[in-house]
């Protein structure tokens, strides 16, 4: 067993943010999510937090652990020494609902605008290659929280939506390439990225949005050149 002091942001819109510290003992083989659940079950049933799967596939339990964007289910208790204070705060750049919960609508709106699919193996049509399946992205929003540009430019598409566009352009299957390129090529699309790289560092799922944004830029440049060459020939 290991005893930790969980220092958790409490409050919500209209209520001032305060820190409340809970002392909790949990098995050191468990994760921070288990500790938070134990606090909720045994000490404070009013604590707001989101979770579902416990194994990094639902993408619901993203918070900031000591300032850094993490999934609570992937943050081992063993990382912290006995008696340590661990600060838990909600994600940045999303509207705050209360305690550890944010409204992920901005991310979902972007994914909807892209018409992001869930590409499953059984959906692969004849002739299409398997490729890197973009269910790699669990839409947890950690990258959106870590990116400073998402916090200042309300229209910036952001790391994971851009990575999603890259994935679709890689394997369009009848998608409207034109409109995907219009989204990615917007001044608030792929070109708005300043390579702050925090998205890559916090992604719990190896998506590498920065690399995807670079891919999109190369794609847009080459496509622009092809179109220019085509126009000249005509």
């Amino acid at each position: 067993m290991r005893t930790l002091n969980l220092r958790i942001v409490r409050g919500g819109p209209g209520r001032p943010a305060t820190y409340q510290t809970y002392q909790v003992s949990v098995d050191e083989h468990l994760n921070i999510l288990d500790a938070v659940q134990k606090v909720w079950a045994t000490q404070d049933p009013t604590l707001l937090f989101r979770h579902a799967c416990h194994h990094a596939s639902c993408g619901l339990c993203g918070v900031r652990v000591n300032g850094r964007e993490r999934l609570m289910c992937l943050t081992p208790i063993a990382e912290f020494p006995e008696g340590a204070t661990v600060t838990l705060e909600p994600l940045r750049n999303f509207p705050w609902v209360g305690d550890l919960v944010v409204d992920v609508k901005p991310l979902m709106d972007r994914m909807a605008a892209i018409q992001a699919p869930y590409v499953r193996k059984d959906e692969l049509t004849a002739g299409s290659e398997e490729g890197t399946r973009f269910e790699d992205c669990i839409e947890c929003g950690l990258c959106m929280s870590a990116c400073p540009v998402v916090g200042s430019d309300s229209a910036y598409l952001g790391p994971s939506p851009l990575a999603m566009i890259k994935r679709l352009l890689e394997e369009p299957r009848g998608r409207d390439i034109q409109s995907l390129c219009a989204l990615a090529g917007d001044a608030h699309g792929a070109w708005r990225c300043h390579s702050v790289m925090e998205c890559v560092e916090v992604c719990p799922s190896n998506v590498d949005p920065s690399q995807a944004i670079g891919w999109l830029r190369r794609y847009l440049i080459l496509r622009g050149r092809r179109q220019l060459a085509g126009a000249e020939r005509r």
């Binding site: 900031r64 000591n66 300032g67 850094r68 964007e69 940045r92 750049n93 870590a146 400073p148 540009v149 998402v150 916090g151 200042s152 430019d153 309300s154 300043h194 390579s195 702050v196 790289m197 925090e198 890559v200 560092e201």
Partner: peptide, 18 residues
Amino acid sequence: RAAAWVDLHGRREGWLAF
């Protein structure tokens, strides 16, 4: 909004470079 650029909390090299 500009304050989002200078929020160093929990950030590392990439942010420092930026």
